[in-house]
């Protein structure tokens, strides 16, 4: 038994594929897994959210075997995890502010006044206070990513899953995204556990991950 919030054990990356992944993401650490676009690496994040059930092996997130959860419990579980999807996943018919507010409005019992007050703090912290009224298509890529990140962190989750978090960003912006996800440092490491998957992590940002893995020909290799 392990205390790691995210554990993959002998999980296949492709249907019927021989290559399996065994990986533990320790608490209060930022872990990156990099692989080619068709390597199946993106599936790790989707499995960790319960979008896909592994055909074999075991996957445990925050002490829960996702395959055993009902639909309702799975939705409740996802509210405990921060998720930054590839492409941001912002709703185009809502403003950045409304996007950030959505999980709070849908998943908490806070009053509208409390939500507005919390939103002001979140948008100010994300540097979006002046552009909260913009629709995603009117905002820059960096502003969209920051809004998506603020939305992912709405419930201050212990675990954050990032899919292709750095694509289209400058090194500085990418580092900001990672630091926001980490939530600052505590005595044990970062405030949150961060699990990032993608095809590329900029060199400047890569150093901020405590554990770095690369998938090479179906084998997960730890980088120095």
């Amino acid at each position: 038994m392990t205390d790691a919030p995210l554990v993959f054990r002998d999980v296949p990356l492709n249907d019927g594929g021989a290559a399996t992944v065994t990986l533990e993401v320790p608490a209060h650490r930022a872990v990156s897994v990099v692989g080619g676009e068709n390597s199946g690496i993106a599936l790790l994040g989707r499995m960790a959210l319960g979008f896909i059930t592994p055909t074999s092996g075991h996957l445990t997130v925050l002490g829960t075997e996702l395959a055993t959860l009902s639909r309702r419990d799975l939705l409740a579980y996802r509210r405990r995890v921060g998720y930054l999807p590839a492409g941001n996943g912002l709703l185009q018919n809502l403003t950045l502010r409304q996007n950030v507010a959505l999980p709070l409005r849908f998943g908490s019992d806070l009053s509208e006044r409390e939500i507005e007050s919390r939103l002001n703090i979140m948008l100010a912290a994300a540097g979006l206070a002046a552009v909260g009224h913009l629709r995603p298509t009117q905002a820059s890529e960096e502003q969209q990513r920051r809004a998506a990140m603020a939305r992912a962190l709405a419930f201050d989750p212990k675990l954050v899953i990032l899919e292709e978090p750095f694509i289209g960003l400058t090194d500085r912006a990418a580092r900001n995204v990672l630091e926001t996800a980490r939530g600052g440092d505590s005595g044990e490491g970062s405030h949150r556990t961060v699990f990032a998957v993608g095809s590329n992590v900029p060199a400047l940002v890569s150093r901020r991950f405590e554990l770095r893995y690369r998938l090479i020909r179906g084998v997960l290799q730890q980088e120095d």
Binding site: L49, L75, P85, G87, L91
Partner: peptide, 18 residues
């Protein structure tokens, strides 16, 4: 369908919103 194409459905699911 546009919500699906833009990844918004997955984003909603990921936020725990059906």
């Amino acid at each position: 369908a546009t919500n699906r194409v833009m990844g918004e459905i997955d984003a909603l699911e990921g936020m725990g919103i059906d």
